[in-house]
Design a protein around this nucleic acid. Sequence first.
DNA 1: TTGAAAGCGCTAACAT
DNA 2: ATGTTAGCGCTTTCAA
Lengths: 340, 340
Amino acid sequence: MVARLKDIAQDLGLSVVTISKVLRNHPDIGEQTRKRVLKRMKELNYQPNFAARSLITGRTWTIGLVVPDLLHPFFAQIAKGISVDVRKKGYSLFISSSDEDPALEQEEIAQLLARRVDVMLIASSQWTTESFRQIEERKIPYILLDRQFPGLSSNFVGVDDQAVGSLATTHLIEQGCERIAHIRGPEVSTAMGRLEGYKQALASHQMTPAAGHVVSIGPSGDHVGDQAGYAATVKLLANKVRPDGIFCFNDPVALGTMRAIFDAGLRVPEDIAVVGCGNLSYSDFLRVPLTSVDQNSKMLSKIAASQALKLAESKSPASSRSELVAPHLAVRASSLRRKK
Amino acid sequence: MVARLKDIAQDLGLSVVTISKVLRNHPDIGEQTRKRVLKRMKELNYQPNFAARSLITGRTWTIGLVVPDLLHPFFAQIAKGISVDVRKKGYSLFISSSDEDPALEQEEIAQLLARRVDVMLIASSQWTTESFRQIEERKIPYILLDRQFPGLSSNFVGVDDQAVGSLATTHLIEQGCERIAHIRGPEVSTAMGRLEGYKQALASHQMTPAAGHVVSIGPSGDHVGDQAGYAATVKLLANKVRPDGIFCFNDPVALGTMRAIFDAGLRVPEDIAVVGCGNLSYSDFLRVPLTSVDQNSKMLSKIAASQALKLAESKSPASSRSELVAPHLAVRASSLRRKK
DNA sequence: TTGAAAGCGCTAACAT
DNA sequence: ATGTTAGCGCTTTCAA
């Protein structure tokens, strides 16, 4: 049988309340008593019953995390980082992977709400803000990760995607590229931010995208990036004006892009320089190592975890805040045209 | 305010018990009553309080998963698969990543025990079986994933590592390799199984490893595989007899191996064929696409999830069982010497 | 500094 | 077919 407060109380001839107070470091307990209780707790390897505690305090010491795909290294890193950080403070993390499926994501959010997690962290693959209204109704604080939604004022932690776009594009400009194309992602905040950054970087160098030099991988998410990148590049190469640099929405797309370039009998980076985004760990091992914008996901997970803990502790709803992590560029062979 | 059974009971002039019975599909409830109750539940968007329920039933509808590294695609796949499968049955999954650190892993296990998860799934990076004794003491059923421990009769779901080793080695033999080396992993069941399979495959072709042709990456886990693989290969190439085929403990090691081979001015697969294990998703994009043993992690996660659910449901402790998933080979350029 | 009483929201066992 | 009683293990409030 697992030990309960009552058992310790009986063993020591004290009341349950006293034991409970020792457990929670309540100040007005005699030094002798405290020691005796602590000793017995250790002997019995006592562990408080979270269910009983939750029932009365209304807190579960539990945090929920929903990501589109745990297999994606970006989200895996976030999940891992958050899990480690919140565990230090006694919280456990429910993680669910929605497979980029909005319906599944809704279910997962509902289940976590039913479990009354103290905070919810969501990297959403939704197109609507419906689920978030539900969370707000339940008065459970939540933080959006990575993707933002226009018209929804919630807590947000993500990458500065505009900086991602301009970092990549500026780098290509500095490498001497003159016709820089962009393979953009779907209509979500990340893709739109990167596109915006791309345009701005060009503009500040008195450049504009040539006709047909911004193509989209379509509505798909990250999971089919490779094929979509290949197709988009084929389209791109069919243009009258051939690009000499391509900034790709993410690394899988960039892999497809490079494959298409090779298949067309061209070289990377001599004919076309390529930059991706995500800085996936395999970038070093490719045929041509891929230059990529690093999203600093470790930092992102740290910030997300600390914001989550703050929300879990404070009872007041607090005004929502938004934090952006600065990306940086990992330069490799795929974009290096200016040898020094 | 969040709705409780009591609220619904009052609204409808019924007792709490009746509502509770409807909630749990108890048979002896009048059709009329059932409908009225269900209707009101929907209106109020009622969600049962898990804490209250757990307190009385002793079950938490919660499963714990501990993996060495969520960033590793093998474990990410397992986590994702299990999360999806158990969620369908109403369970939520606590996931924690131990960073290959035995001390951290112990803490995580302790925390999950304190939360009284219904089942625990552990891909352990421990060297001792100490933590498992603790779990057994608490009478919480658990399943070991991937890595086994000699002398510990517990539930186990993993890959048939001996098959991994013989699959890879036999393939190299069939490709005409005559001096097949093996870069082995640390002293854990997976590495030992693969080594065993390697030896058996050689033996059944009347071959034996040449002196110095089995080298170890040392005590490290998967996380530094690349550098360790590089170093091990350098050692291997310093032998009097140069191998013409190398079976590597895992894919990161194989990447390091290929790098070392290139750096030595040799070719893959013409001079040395290479086979890895894990079939990581990037294998197709490498300079030389990597032949790799696929561990069938999707199947593994399915089996693990269904075993976990079975354990969660059954009250009896049931005899422990062990299930092995069969691996298969993904052949790519790094080992193809016999063009057909 | 300690403890008695009450109750969190629910379910199990037993009436009716 | 529905309700009564009791209590899961803990915390909160208030009294001693």
